[in-house]
Design a binder for these strands. Structure first.
Lengths: 233, 233
DNA sequence: GCGCCACTTTGAGCCAGAGCAAACAGCCTC
DNA sequence: GAGGCTGTTTGCTCTGGCTCAAAGTGGCGC
């Protein structure tokens, strides 16, 4: 395989300020791979030999319970680390990572982890922040599930996705990830039926426009009111 | 204040294998304090100037939503770090920490964080694991809330507490933290009424014995079956 | 040892949202 | 462009668990 070009990672905040030589050294042990939509980068329970960085596309991180219930834990955006089981002292991946769209992933063997920590100043702190942020977000999800109605939770999930990957279109802001009603249900702990009903009502009230695996928000402010429980969708 | 004795922390895994001099140096910037039951070590939203280590007792970590709903995020046991906002790049505490019983806490100013990281080999990795573990646990909670019935969730919460702080008594295994029905409800996202009804039924069926702020598990195996949904309490 | 307060129990009614069922519509393949 | 998937919509029914209400009860302070 040809050496990877340092321009791939030169622009990422995690590697800011490094010399060309250092970038090359970091990339020496990395491999890049393309994943078609719906292909799995790694599967829950699989032995974790690598950690990964998303170069382009979107990854859906999914946890499956022993009974088969699935929960979408988060979406990974370009530039983010994922599958860093090695950092958390885990020997196998606690969730599966599925390409939500065609994606390009850079992967290092776990052995490269300590090297990166030493070589890249601030890498360690940045990783702490990444994991810390995810912990905060996950705890926020727990709070929501404990205290809010389904309608508010779904509204929040949609707004979060808009922030993460919203794309301006003539009709409004479109979520840039193919997103089924089922996905939305798995992010909010409800059923696709309930999500579908909510979106239908929101659409009738001019808040969103739905489509097959697609949601476009036409009235973000109105949806914020719904998320805060200060307005009925 | 008299210097703290190194025997306080010598036995903790995080500081294993350090020389007496190093232990003294680490303790030089720490302060210990005693917190009576129900006193707060720090409050949600407060500026995070210190990080903490629990020497003895139990701490309840509580998040409160803008609307006032409370969720018990976790219990901290002796020997664990908590309030490590500094590691996650947060400037204020995301939750409150309340002494569940009389407790002794060792606190360092944030400035000591990087020092500890450099001075103590393996400290960084241990902290990653701590945060990583909490992330896993929190995500497991999300899964439970999305896919399980209230009865199973409460049973799991009780079993988890038994593991963390169970004390053998003639009647069975008693949870070593004063635990109201309200606390249990806040850990599982339900109401104290429902928890009370469940415990009453479990008691009638010989699984547990309840008391004021107290729960004793008399049939752990039976409770596991309830937690797994393979038996009705 | 009395009274109070915080915690707990139990009852009754109700409703958000799950489960079940069935029809419907983009979109891709051949 | 016909056929078949996969994803979506919508109606109906049923129920777990929340809400409101009120009556216990253990234990601490005085």
């Amino acid at each position: 395989m040809a050496p990877l070009d340092k321009s791939l990672i030169a622009g990422l905040p995690a590697f800011a300020g490094l010399s060309d030589e250092e970038l090359d050294a970091i990339l020496a042990t990395a491999r890049s791979a393309r994943f078609a939509r719906d292909r799995s980068v790694f599967a829950q329970g699989e032995e974790a030999r690598h950690f990964h960085l998303l170069l382009s596309g979107h990854i859906r991180v999914v946890r499956t319970s022993p009974e088969g219930t699935q929960v979408v834990a988060r979406f990974i955006n370009a530039g983010e680390l994922f599958g860093i089981a090695v950092a958390m002292g885990l020997s196998s991946y606690p969730a599966s990572a599925i390409a939500a769209v065609d994606s390009v992933v850079l992967s290092w063997p776990n052995a490269a982890w300590s090297d990166l920590q030493q070589r890249v100043p601030g890498f360690s702190a940045a990783t702490y922040r990444t994991i810390g942020t995810r912990l905060q977000e996950t705890q926020a999800t727990v709070m929501e599930m404990a205290s809010e109605q389904v309608e508010q939770r779904v509204a929040r999930a949609v707004l979060r996705l808009v922030q993460q990957s919203g794309r301006k279109t003539p009709d409004g802001i479109e979520i840039g990830v193919p997103l089924s009603r089922q996905d939305l249900a798995e992010m909010t702990g409800t059923t696709l039926h309930t999500v579908s009903r909510l979106l239908s009502r929101w659409q009738a009230n001019g808040l969103v426009v739905g489509g097959r695996r697609k949601v476009t928000v036409t009235d973000p402010h109105g949806l914020v009111l719904v998320a805060e429980g200060r307005r009925d969708g």
